[in-house]
Amino acid sequence: MSRKTLLYGVLCVLCVPFVFPTWWMVTSSLKPVSEILAFPPSLLPARPMLDAYRQVFELQPFATQYWNSLYIAAVVTLGTLAVSAPAGYAFARLRFRGSNALFLMILVGLLIPSEVTIVPLFRIFHTAGLTDTHWPLILVPVLGAPSVLATFIMRQFFLTLPKELDEAAAVDGLGRAAAFWRIGLPLARPAVGAVSIFTFLHSWNLFLEPIVFLSTPERFTLPQALTQFVDAYGGPMWNVQLAAASLTALPVLVVFVLAQKQFVEGLAHTGLKG
């Protein structure tokens, strides 16, 4: 057996746990409940049916919820870029008193689980009259702990740009801010890509926060909606849940497969140097 065949073999085996769950989710959403629970599980539905998909839209305002998740994730992504790109640039390339201390301080946010701060955050937003709105789901990720990772990635990227760029900018009479805007940011496209992916996915997957902050089904986001497909007595409707889960995962997967070169390479170029 050649080394190549061996490598392919290893890769194929390793692939199974990565691919099988998604495959199972999608195919099971086309099965009746009894077949989903059968052992051994069937690889393909015996008689595929789209019943569950119809129910997804009948039981919940699913299209509205889809839109909510989509627009919130988009706004959060743009907002995070606006906050983290200048911050990352400043931490990487500008010298100012206390920059290290400030950086270490915001780094704390990177490691704070949201369960820790959810109650005080809820009280803060309730005091401001903003519960059951999308504001907490936008403001906290853009300004709070989740955006710290974005700033961190941005900083790591800007560290890799050669010093000479700054000198050249100074010779051209560009100030620091202009150097960031005209030179730094255009060069940072891979980092921007990476941050966009991280941020979008983070917002798209948010689970605890929507459950705590939102109470009107028309304002729900997708992960929250997934848990709402239950029968009259709270028992989960497995096929409908899996159909809804497939609907939330597939478009993102398709976008990812189409744009994966940009995705992956954007991500890749950020971690190059520490």
Binding site: A90, L94, I106, G109, T117, V140, L143, G144, S147
Partner: peptide, 19 residues
């Protein structure tokens, strides 16, 4: 210094308020 502070201000303020 000033540009530095301006650039990190939203992030730092956000951390103070939401962390």
């Amino acid at each position: 210094h000033l540009v530095g502070y301006l650039f990190v201000a939203p992030q730092v303020a956000g951390s103070l308020l939401f962390v």
